[in-house]
């Protein structure tokens, strides 16, 4: 049980770390467009020039 002496403070530190990362994400505009990136990832440029698939 003594391990909790370490684990509980650790969990608090971890939470603050997560909050810090999130605040950075908000600041850098990651939440500005909630729809676009989901589609964007499907449209990659580096497709080899291939004959039409129809």
């Amino acid at each position: 049980m003594e391990i909790l002496y370490l684990l509980i403070p650790l969990s608090v530190v971890l939470i603050f770390l997560i909050v810090g990362i999130f605040l950075w994400a908000v600041k850098s505009g990651q939440f500005e467009d909630m729809e676009g990136p989901a589609h964007r990832i499907l449209m990659d440029d580096d497709r080899p020039q291939s004959p039409p698939d129809e």
């Binding site: 500005e32 467009d33 909630m34 729809e35 676009g36 589609h39 964007r40 499907l42 449209m43």
Partner: peptide, 28 residues
């Protein structure tokens, strides 16, 4: 009308000489 329009616009505009960056926001 769809996400491909965003892709098309971004690529077309950024291919113009002199354009430094383009960002299209799909939601707005």
């Amino acid at each position: 009308v769809c996400a491909a329009c965003v892709w098309l616009n971004e690529h077309h505009i950024s291919s113009l000489p002199g354009v430094l960056s383009v960002e299209v926001n799909y939601s707005t």
